[in-house]
Design a protein around this nucleic acid. Structure first.
Lengths: 340, 340
DNA sequence: CTGTTAGCGCATTCAT
DNA sequence: ATGAATGCGCTAACAG
């Protein structure tokens, strides 16, 4: 690059403030004590010249990039974006800046994105979901502050920020039970499903637990499987109806499948909640504007993202704090009706 | 930073390949001809040592950051996130990387985010929406490749990637007219509304145009205003009903307000589309899963984002291409019914 | 507390 | 075509 006189450097302001470049650096990053008079002079010069440091030079010299890598899996999904939003908020007013990448639930993309982020020398890494093997994550955690959101790994208990999914599933089912429902169907994902496995399976555990406590033996015919997308909710209800096993309520493991279920029921002329009650999980924005509004479990995506940001900053600054577990909250709206 | 022997540099691989550091640099960035044998030797060494260049050193030395700044206004909104997704896609398989910032429709935040992006020396800038004054944008455009998505500025015709909103509004209204509707209400935003002003106002122009052509004088009592959020759609319908002016169809300027309208009608016991037809704009994902599914105008957010990425890359490489205008597409679903 | 010196890792002259 | 030298703008270790 040609040194066009347009780029001011630390030397320019050192000159103007009658101090040495290092002193300028010191006041700018507050790394050491500087006498008030000089500090003021430097600040003054910085202001007058409207000087902005070159972050590449800073990073090169200091070895810190002041960035946090964030690897999501589904850019555009309400839930994941909620987490990103939280991270953005949590990083606001700090000197760190997030760098996003999207793995799109494809391991090879995820891998490449990860390498990209490391090449960018991120000072910390926040992973949202993902399918990277646990051993890989352990290796990363050993060399870099790492936080994993929405995934709960046994070997990395202090770096996971996740939801108590079992409790959430339990609460949702309890609610239906308390409304008098006994034949409660559940839309889940296959046991072999490789994504977000734990989350959804834990919700199913909660469902079964609640039934057990109520003295109801879970009926496999009331369990249907989808892939978390809306369309699969439609199919799930079709399957369910095809089995001929009566039910009065459905608990879908996420809102998107609940939307699909809602549509399938509508097509069949089955009214919600008059004929069948429905409950979802996630509290996606549009859930409130369904007709009728969907009762759902709210997953505090924003709060989790925010927490992730805070925790990773603490890790970077060695104030080692542990990770945390969040609870989902039941949002009662209209699509559940007292049964009988 | 201490030079722990862990970081390989260009010198290490130069040594291993028996060439000079400059040659390594040359083959890595293909900046000059290098004899095949040496090139191969270098590549070999790079592979064996798994060398990754330090991007900060690269940027510092070259003056290029290989990043594109992306300033959105509403992280988490389906439409804006669709654009981000498109940008991500468009940048895939290039050497550029996006850096996101969120202005949250607050001018001061937007301003600060902008400064942050410039401090990060982005090689190009993509603005999505936003309220920055046109003069500011002109100044930026003079010093940096700039693309503005979802905003149409008269003084920067070649940098705006936007939608033909008037045509979209026209098409939506035409469709309702063709179904036999004559009393078509429209939910828009106030004339003084400062955000996305043009987009929504142009849709209203299209609405009026279509009515005119059909020989219908637009009735101000059929025009209600919201703020683009769902809740305001609820209020809009309440207002409309309060006016006592009959209507058989509603065209909402965006899907979110259509969702709200849908809910308000439901609460009043007015059936869609049996009693009132409804049409939205944006084709948000959940529109397809409404009950009944919402007919809407699809705005190609993804394609626009992708185009923005392509165009800005061309600008950076001096292959100056103009910006472009996209058309919205009518997505016919169930919530419009032939009238009478 | 502060100025001087020496890199950080790479791109790019300039010679050859 | 290629190696040596120089500098990008800043931080940090070293003296004083």
């Amino acid at each position: 690059m040609v040194n066009n006189k347009e780029t001011l450097t630390i030397a320019d302001i050192a000159h103007k403030a009658h101090v040495s470049p290092s002193t300028v650096s010191r006041v700018l990053r507050g790394s050491a004590g500087v006498v008030d008079a000089k500090r003021e002079a430097v600040m003054q010069a910085v202001r007058e010249l409207n000087y902005r440091p070159n972050i590449f030079a800073q990073s090169l010299a200091s070895g810190q990039s002041m960035t946090i890598g964030v690897l999501t899996q589904n850019f555009g999904s309400p839930f994941y974006d909620g987490i990103l939003q939280g991270i953005l908020q949590g990083l606001e007013d700090t000197d760190y800046w997030p760098i996003f990448a999207d793995g799109r639930w494809q391991t090879d993309l995820e891998q490449r994105a990860l390498e990209n982020l490391r090449d960018r020398q991120v000072d910390g890494l926040i992973l949202i979901g993902g399918e990277l093997p646990e051993t890989t994550l352990q290796a990363i955690a050993a060399s870099l502050p790492l936080i994993i959101v929405a995934r709960d790994l046994a070997t990395l208990p202090d770096q996971c920020i996740s939801l108590d999914n079992e409790k959430g599933g339990y609460q949702a089912t309890r609610y239906l039970l308390e409304m008098g429902h006994r034949d409660i169907a559940h839309i889940t994902v296959p046991a072999t499903y490789h994504r977000i496995v734990n989350d959804v399976h834990e919700r199913r555990m909660g469902y079964k637990q609640a039934l057990h406590e109520a003295g109801i033996e879970p009926d496999p015919r009331l369990l249907v499987e989808g892939n978390l997308l809306q369309q699969s909710g439609v199919l799930a209800v079709e399957t369910l109806l095809g089995r001929g096993r009566p039910f009065s309520a459905i608990f879908a493991a996420n809102d998107q499948m609940a939307f699909g279920a809602r549509l399938a029921l509508y097509r069949r002329g089955i009214r919600v909640p008059d004929d069948v009650s429905l409950i979802g999980f996630d509290d996606e924005t549009s859930a409130a504007y369904m007709v009728p509004p969907l009762t759902t479990m709210r997953q505090p995506a924003n709060a989790m993202g925010c927490a992730a940001a805070k925790v990773i900053l603490d890790m970077i600054n060695d104030k080692s704090v542990g990770a945390m577990k969040f609870a989902a909250e039941l949002i009662v709206r209209e699509s559940v009706r007292r049964y009988r």
